[in-house]
């Protein structure tokens, strides 16, 4: 009876003196935090602290050498958005890059995955062949394609020779401002789309076959099956990859730097290559850090859109 009338602890002192509360606190709060503490400390050390430092550095004139960094407030950001024409151009190229990668590889991957999901025997060979480019290092892929696209000894030159034409296909795709960015996107996509295809194929295989049977009984054709069964079934994976690809588009660097270094004449410049040049060639590390922060803000904005959609009930 005494237990029933015992007062529930409300102040911190009362709680600390209460044995039941103490045990609960240790079991439900303290021990889980202790378990996660090593990882948390590591995360703070290698992610949070450098990230905060990066934000601070973006507000300094740090040259990337030594420790002299004067605080200059938002000056780097002002220059970035209101003075630096190359940044605007690079941002535009990033947006073109994003539009390309949110369409071309998705269409290719959806089509190939749908086709491959129908194959009962030997599908593994096709999957492997289409996936192999994804495991190649970017430097290898670029070297292969720089040779294939070479106007004098590449595929185009061979085609010209075979067809008796001159300069019809043997074009310096990477050397022309109007085609450089799209040529690199083509090369990157050659390596990337197989990865998307495997993800979509795995998602398609998780769709219960009974749904396709029901659709067939209802008289659905192939397109209607794809439209009303396959697409809704893989939608979470597709939308998640949409988010990831959009974020990755702002991080594009290696393929561009290894093929044209942003040229010719800045035609394939993106924010990440510009950041690298500012930080490591022009000794403008603070300014480069500001570009890094801007990329992070864009990524955060994209994530926010997806989180908002999820909160509104989208199945992402």
């Amino acid at each position: 009876m005494a237990v029933l009338t015992q007062k529930k602890p409300t102040t911190i002192l009362e709680k600390l003196n209460d044995e039941t509360w103490r045990r609960k606190f240790i079991r439900n709060v303290l021990i889980p935090w202790l378990f996660i503490a090593p990882l948390l400390i590591l995360h703070i050390y290698v992610v949070t602290v450098p990230a905060v430092q990066g934000i601070y550095m973006s507000m300094t004139d740090w040259k990337g050498v030594g420790r002299n960094a004067n605080f200059i407030g938002l000056e780097n950001y002002r220059e970035l958005f209101f003075e630096d024409e190359t940044f605007g151009k690079a941002l535009g190229n990033n947006i073109i890059w994003m539009i390309f990668f949110l369409t071309v590889p998705f269409i290719l991957a959806l089509f190939a995955a749908t086709m491959l999901s129908q194959i009962k025997r030997g599908g593994m060979i096709y999957r492997s062949i289409l996936f192999i480019p994804y495991v190649l290092a970017s430097v290898v892929t670029i070297t292969i394609w720089k040779n294939l696209l070479n106007p004098q000894r590449g595929i185009g030159a061979a085609l010209d020779k075979m067809l008796g034409l001159e300069g019809a296909f043997g074009i310096a795709y990477l050397g022309r401002p109007e085609s450089a960015l799209m040529s690199i996107a083509f090369i990157d996509n050659w390596h990337f789309w197989g990865f998307l295809m495997i993800l979509f194929l795995a998602a398609m295989q998780a769709i219960p076959p009974v749904l396709y049977d029901a659709a067939k009984i209802d008289g659905a054709n192939r397109w209607q099956e794809f439209r009303h069964v396959t697409l809704p079934g893989i939608r979470p994976v597709v939308l998640f990859m949409f988010m990831m690809v959009a974020i990755w588009s702002f991080l594009a660097f290696d393929y561009i730097f290894l093929s044209t270094q942003g040229g010719p004449g800045g035609a394939s410049e993106v924010i990440a290559t510009l950041l690298y040049k500012n930080a490591f060639f022009r000794f403008e590390a603070g300014y480069g850090a500001a570009m890094g922060v801007v990329i992070s803000i864009f990524a955060g904005f994209i994530i926010m859109i997806f989180v908002t959609l999820r909160r509104r009930g989208w199945d992402i």
């Binding site: 106007p151 004098q152 074009i171 310096a172 990477l174 050397g175 022309r176 044209t260 010719p264």
Partner: peptide
Amino acid sequence: GGIDLYFTNDGAT
């Protein structure tokens, strides 16, 4: 041999 070729010729070429 031309500006676009200048942008694509590598050291070995």
